[in-house]
Design a protein around this nucleic acid. Structure first.
Lengths: 127, 127
DNA sequence: ACTAGTGTTCTATCTCTCTAGTACAGCGAG
DNA sequence: CTCGCTGTACTAGAGAGATAGAACACTAGT
């Protein structure tokens, strides 16, 4: 359960958190019945206000991905994994779609765009 | 000179505007000596407040990409094209890098990521 | 001169995100 | 019961982004 938050990349922090919880469930590193880090623990871990984490969790409860056990914690529901896996595809595609559209608008050819993506992935492997 | 603005995709509008001006110059659809749309014209065209457009232009003047001809308009400078072309590579790579990192974090394999990108580009051709 | 267009600058206000601080309610171990 | 942990709820404020509206200075065309 590791989180990586960028406070100033445009995406609200509470959204980055809920996104990454979904991704962790989709990737099966968080399974139904398991508990998510407590609000205060995660907040101090990623150096963020507890209210921000709380909002992320509240959203996830609203989507039926987490279930609140008052006084104990928040648990991943049984229906979460399939839900999160389709969400993952949607969220990632959505973001790529925006960036690709922007790249095309900038006058880059589709060949050049693919080239950039391949190179960035290669660099991420080397690093 | 066409602009496409997404008011709620995280990137501030004034930044989307200055970005797209840079891209238009990099793609040579805007050349040195040409004038950019007037503040009020562009503002009404993309349904945005004139102050927002003005801020974008102000930033571009600050970067030496536009030059102000008071009472007439804003002109693309001679040094703009090479500047914008290197900017383009940097800006696009930066965005892709973020999204790729997020996709990897979500548990998708590099193969799957490349597959998604190829598919989205293919769809953009069909459309 | 007048007018219409240009960029520029200013204040006020709104919303969203995030922080800060406080308080309350439920659970479990000692 | 008490203590420490959990989630939840609320108010208040700072900051960024955007809007609204007004005003000023300049240029060109008539």
């Amino acid at each position: 359960m590791f989180f990586q938050i960028n406070p100033h990349n445009g995406v609200p922090i509470y959204e980055q958190i809920s996104r990454q919880v979904k991704f962790a469930i989709a990737a099966k590193s968080l399974r139904p019945g398991e508990r998510v880090p407590s609000v205060r623990e995660l907040a101090s871990h990623i150096a963020v206000n507890p209210n921000t984490v709380s909002k992320a969790y509240r959203d996830l409860v609203g989507e039926g991905i987490l279930e609140s056990l008052r006084g104990e914690g928040l648990e991943v529901t049984a229906k979460a994994p399939p839900h999160c896996q389709s969400e993952r595809a949607r969220l990632v595609s959505e973001r790529f779609s925006q960036v690709i559209q922007e790249a095309q608008q900038s006058g880059l050819t589709n060949r050049e765009i693919k080239q950039i993506v391949h190179q960035l992935i290669q660099e991420s492997i080397d690093a």
